[in-house]
Write a protein that binds this DNA or RNA. Structure first.
Length: 506
RNA sequence: GCGGAAAUAGCUCAUUUGGUAGAGCGACAGCCUUCCAAGCUGUAGGUGGCGGGUUCGAGACCCGUUUUCCGCUCCA
């Protein structure tokens, strides 16, 4: 087992042991690829959300937020392309145990026939030399014609079957064509099954007239369908953005790797609406802004890299990922996509509502182009959590596990600790605790030796420990101990709040 | 979804070939008071993942199932 795998396992068990992340429904043996955030995890997650929201919405005058419902009109997913792109007919070969997309299997078969046609053409060109007329050959040669017709026949079966979800006919087609598994070479296929990557449920309490609706697979559509509402009610001028934090759901075929890939996950997205033709300029702008955001959390630059997409999704004309060096290697953390006018134009078409912006500078109306920044909240959590996990050997040879979380992200900012549990120190500590707790998440702990208590706070990433000792009772000073350096200094009680505020916002 | 491995206390793990479960750490209560884990005393916590089978008897053997890990597969 590699060091990284070892470390990843330690991080996962640390997350559980210290109340950050639990497996869903654990007492019922768990639910695969679903996780719950515990008492420390939820604080940390909320802090990440707040940090993102402020940087996007509060610090940008031209970005506003929205909180759209998870349930949306089913036609939205037709317009967005998800109904088609997210549901694939799959078929398994029983001998090789390999799974294929049934339509791809048929299309590969078509490609094979096309290969045969090309061979005929190449042969004929050699034979006829200069005088070869490819078009004439294609329309007259009986072997080519037969193959062309065959392709036509297959397409005329496949596409209607695909459109009507006629899975039986796709299976029949595969059998009739005698398509064999490239691995096993056998034609021993299972039935064609629909793998829908979107979760669905019914809306309407009576099942007979219930409508199937989907749990959103991305939050972006909730922004697009509110574009008109927000642009008009907020008197927004292009360029402007709409931000949203929310849950999304994907029925992934396999979903392992802890909270990196979950069936229920949370996204922090911002859709930025721009003038057509300027989208790539803004694409670059947001790539730069977003990487700056990541670096502002204090994680070294070499942990991040950009990955530009070669193969673009159906809606994009440029796409780049910010990847993070997770314990399992560099993986996507955030995507910045130039989504063109695909989504708004699609909604304009499907809804029949005019989704346009009148640009007074150009004196014309247009469907805005969109640049999207979409970051996985759970992935950000994992990035910060895994990077912060440190096992240190101290000078005296002892070990400590310390979560070097950015202070602003840490679940607790301060721990208040009476040095001993007597001599009125707990009472004094409570007093200090009460004065701090309205401003910061604070934890009070009087159990066990002071060193052990420091270690407990290190394990959950609390950046500062305030210790009340006998001197406190005499001169109203305490010691403040910093998590990473373990250094202490003595400060006046009245200055605690200000010093913490200053350092946390660093 | 397929193949392989695993599942015993909160955690890490024991329990020699089948004879009704133990330790360390942790937690809690108390003692001790000492600014960086491992001082003392005591307490709690397990129908051995779950279901079935073989057996006089199963944590151990067999089957199923769930979850996790590894590999493959898939991934807008």
């Amino acid at each position: 087992m590699s060091n990284n795998e070892e470390k990843f396992k330690k991080i996962i068990s640390h997350a559980k042991e210290y109340g950050f992340v639990f497996q869903s429904s654990e007492i019922y043996d768990g639910l695969s690829a679903v996780y719950d955030y515990g008492q420390n995890g939820v604080e940390m997650k909320n802090n990440i959300k707040e940090y993102w929201w402020k940087s996007m919405v509060q610090y940008h005058e031209n970005i506003v937020g929205v909180d759209s419902a998870i349930f949306m009109h089913p036609t939205i997913w037709k317009a967005s392309g998800h109904v088609d792109a997210f549901s694939d007919p799959m078929i398994d070969n029983k001998d090789s145990k390999k799974r294929y997309r049934a339509d791809v299997l048929v299309e590969d078969f078509i490609a094979k026939i096309e290969g045969k046609i090309q061979k005929e053409i190449t042969k004929a060109r050699k034979r006829f030399g200069e005088s070869f007329d490819e078009n004439q050959f294609k329309t007259t040669n009986p072997r080519v014609l037969a193959n062309v017709n065959k392709i036509e026949d297959i397409k005329n079966r496949l596409y209607p079957a695909m459109d009507s979800d006629n899975l039986e006919d796709i299976k029949l087609l595969i059998e009739e064509l005698g398509i064999a598994c490239p691995i096993s070479g056998s034609k021993n296929w299972t039935d064609v099954r629909q793998f829908n990557l979107m979760f669905s449920t019914q809306m309407g309490s009576l099942s007979e007239d219930a409508n199937q609706i989907f749990l959103r697979p991305e939050t972006a559509q909730g922004i697009f369908v509110n574009y008109l509402n927000i642009q008009k009610s907020g008197r927004m001028k292009i360029p402007f953005g709409i931000a949203q934090i929310g849950k999304a759901f994907r029925n992934e075929i396999v979903a392992r790797q802890f909270i990196f890939r979950m069936k229920e996950f949370e996204q922090m997205e911002m859709q930025f609406f721009v003038r057509p033709g300027e989208e790539l300029k803004w694409f670059e702008y947001w790539k730069n802004e977003r990487i700056k955001w990541h670096l502002s959390l204090g994680i070294p630059e070499e942990k991040y890299r950009f990955h530009d997409h070669e193969k673009l999704a159906h809606y994009a004309n440029a796409a780049s990922d910010i990847e993070f060096d997770f314990p399992m290697g560099f993986k996507e953390l955030e995507g910045i996509h130039s989504r063109t006018d695909f989504d708004l134009a699609a909604h304009q078409k499907f809804s029949g509502k005019k989704i346009q912006y009148f640009d007074p500078e150009l004196n014309q109306s247009y469907v805005p182009f969109v640049v999207e920044t979409s970051i996985g909240l759970d992935r950000t959590f994992l990035a910060l959590f895994s990077h912060s996990y440190n096992e240190e050997v101290l000078e005296d040879g002892s070990m400590r596990v310390v979560m070097k979380l950015p202070p602003i992200i840490a679940p607790y900012k301060v721990a208040v600790l009476p040095l001993v549990k007597k001599d009125n120190l707990p009472e004094k500590a409570r007093e200090i605790m009460d004065s701090l707790k309205y401003n910061y998440m604070c934890q009070y702990d009087e159990k066990d030796a002071i060193g052990r208590r420091y270690r407990r706070q290190d394990a959950i990433g609390t950046p500062y420990c305030i210790t009340i000792d006998h001197q406190t009772l005499e001169d109203n000073t305490v010691t403040i101990r910093e998590r990473d350096s373990m250094k202490q200094e003595r400060i006046a009680i009245g200055k605690i709040s200000g010093i913490i505020a200053e350092r946390i916002n660093d």
